[in-house]
């Protein structure tokens, strides 16, 4: 049974595209057929983060408007044959996305994939509402920072009212993915802690992705962070998050919190 996931946040720049690529690759690494779909029409970037920017021929808008068939627009990943990308259009604007068109494409994707991961654009307008429209599960990407938490709260409200599931009296399963977390700064009291964000947003935690150079390094070379270096701290966190999405129960660890006596004493003084 295919599952549709929306990766959303309201606020821009919190890591939606990075997380879509990393979770998509992580699920595909489990040998499950996965497609990542870019809904950011006009400002596509998932192709770039996935390293497929030179292979885009047709896109989501072409498929919706009937200029191309779905299989023509799907790009198969060169590293993982279970991973596919449906890019967004770079030249059109969001008005080219229609509710009926999106529904048809999602329906077709459900025929051949186990996981359909929709990368939402920032904001709460058409692109974002259409990306979440058919979701079964929502991954709410949040930074431990006031504006990101506020926007996530707004998005949670939309997930509970504007989705197809909400309209038929059902609910979208919502999960919090806390990104760019710095355990040392949170411990010093200068960053919202995991429990603060959880208490405010009150949705279950999918994972904590540490602030890390590995994330930028992976996007520089166009490789999802879970494929670039699967032993790095952010990759391990994303791989665990993907296992939780797939239904496994794992304890959530806070990356970077295991600190020795030395760093406890000197790490704090340095602040």
């Amino acid at each position: 049974m295919a599952k549709v996931i929306v990766v959303t946040s309201g606020k821009g720049g919190v890591g939606k595209t990075t997380s879509t690529a990393a979770l998509g690759a992580a699920l595909a690494q489990r040998n499950e057929k996965t497609v990542v779909v870019d809904f950011d029409v006009g400002l596509r970037n998932l192709d770039l983060v996935m390293g497929a920017e030179r292979r885009v021929v047709y896109d989501l808008v072409n498929v919706i408007q009937g200029d191309a068939k779905l299989p023509q627009a799907l790009i198969r990943d060169k590293r993982l044959e279970t991973l596919h990308l449906l890019p967004a259009s770079q030249t059109r604007d969001k008005d080219n996305l229609t509710a009926e068109g999106v529904e048809r494409v999602i329906g077709e994707l459900k025929q051949s994939f186990d996981w359909i991961i929709c990368d939402s654009p920032a904001g709460i307008e058409r692109g974002a509402t259409l990306a979440m429209r058919h979701a079964d599960v929502a991954v709410v990407v949040t930074n431990p920072e006031v504006s990101s938490v506020r926007d996530s709260d707004r998005i949670i409200g939309l997930l509970d009212s504007k989705t197809a599931r909400a309209e038929r009296g059902d609910r979208v399963e919502k999960h919090l993915l806390l990104t760019r977390y710095d355990a040392a700064r949170a411990e010093r009291g200068d960053m919202l802690k995991v429990e603060d964000v959880l208490e405010i947003l009150s949705i279950p935690l999918l994972g904590i992705i540490p602030e890390s150079m590995d994330v930028l390094r992976a996007s520089n070379v166009g490789t999802p962070v879970t494929l670039a270096d699967s032993r790095s701290a952010p990759a391990l966190a994303y791989l665990d998050a993907a296992r939780r999405l797939a239904g496994e129960t794992l304890p959530v660890t806070i990356p970077g919190e295991k600190r020795g006596l030395f760093s406890k004493i000197f790490g704090r003084r340095a602040a």
């Binding site: 920072e145 709260d153 009291g189 405010i200």
Partner: peptide
């Protein structure tokens, strides 16, 4: 520290929103 302030401000704001 600043995090408790952030937390309080968010709690008040979101209760209204």
């Amino acid at each position: 520290t600043s995090a408790p302030t952030a937390r309080e401000r968010l709690q008040v704001l979101l209760a209204h929103e």
